[in-house]
Computed example of a mutant assay.
Amino acid sequence: MRPGVHVRPASSTDIEDLVDLCLQARNESGLGRQLCSDDRERLSAHLSVLGSVQDGVVLVATCDGEPAGMALCRLLGPGLLSDATVLSLDAVYVRPQSRRRGLGHAMLQAAAEVAEAAGATDVYAAPLPGSRGMQRFLARLGFAPAAAHRVVSTPALQRRLAQDVPVTARRPASRGLEDLIERRRRARARAAGDDERARQAGASMSMQVRRAVQSRRPSSSSTTTS
């Protein structure tokens, strides 16, 4: 670590300086709300909570006694899907005027020591999109690609879900309607067939009755003798 550069856990007296660093990182990145809130009170509350919970780690780096950088971390796991504990490095930021003085390296050294003490098997980092300097810095320290994050606003996702209904999701409703129509068609056919068979049965019965009556009737051409 270079002379004049120090890294330590943040205390309650550092919160306002950390809020300033967060807002400066937000303005520099251009990501807006995807990075953090622009509300100072909300940021102050979030940082206070992160620094007070058991698995939260907030590191502040000072250069010549002035706060110049921060690292926000969380210890994750073990959980339902993994027995391992990992350190998630959610944010690393150094003021532009304090860069190239070893602050980033010093904060990563402190984060590695936190990970080792907690038994964390890996350290994950989520550098900001477009932050080429941070990407190169992490790659130089051995960080390899692990996953790609994508983001969408909730209203936009809901609109797309409503518009882009998968074919497999549409089939049950249409198939059910077709089945209903087919069942009704078969029912009508059976009903029509039953009526025809009943009519034919009735006609056959009437014919049999007429024949029986005719066979019992005396012939008009026969004569009787005494």
Rank of each mutant, 00 (worst) to 15 (best):
R42H: 10
R42P: 07
L43F: 02
L43K: 00
L43W: 04
A45S: 14
H46Q: 15
H46A: 14
L47D: 03
L47G: 01
L47E: 03
L50Q: 15
L50V: 15
G51Y: 04
S52A: 13
V53E: 09
Q54V: 09
D55A: 14
G56K: 06
G56V: 08
V57I: 15
V58I: 05
T62I: 10
C63Q: 08
C63K: 12
D64W: 03
D64K: 08
G65S: 06
G65Q: 07
P67W: 04
A68F: 07
A68Q: 05
G69Q: 05
G69E: 01
M70F: 04
A71C: 09
L72P: 07
L72D: 03
C73T: 04
C73N: 07
R74N: 07
R74I: 11
R74W: 06
R74D: 09
R74T: 14
L75H: 02
L75T: 02
L76G: 00
L76M: 12
P78I: 13
G79L: 10
G79N: 14
G79R: 10
L80H: 11
L81D: 14
L81R: 14
L81M: 14
S82A: 12
S82L: 08
D83S: 15
A84C: 09
A84Y: 08
A84D: 15
L87Q: 05
L87M: 07
L87A: 11
L87Y: 08
S88W: 13
S88Y: 11
L89E: 07
L89F: 02
L89D: 07
A91L: 14
A91V: 13
Y93W: 10
Y93D: 08
V94M: 04
R95C: 10
Q97R: 12
Q97W: 13
S98Q: 08
R99N: 06
R100S: 11
R100A: 13
G102A: 04
G104Q: 00
A106I: 09
A106Q: 03
M107L: 15
Q109F: 08
Q109G: 13
Q109R: 10
A110I: 15
A110T: 13
A112G: 12
A112L: 07
A112F: 04
E113N: 02
E113R: 03
A115I: 13
A117Y: 05
A117I: 11
G119C: 05
G119Y: 05
T121H: 03
T121N: 02
T121A: 07
D122P: 03
D122H: 06
V123S: 00
V123W: 02
Y124F: 14
P127K: 01
P127W: 01
L128K: 03
P129T: 10
P129F: 06
R132G: 11
G133S: 11
G133T: 10
M134L: 15
M134F: 00
Q135F: 03
Q135N: 04
Q135H: 12
F137V: 03
L138A: 01
L138M: 01
R140K: 09
L141M: 06
L141W: 01
L141V: 01
L141R: 01
G142D: 01
G142K: 00
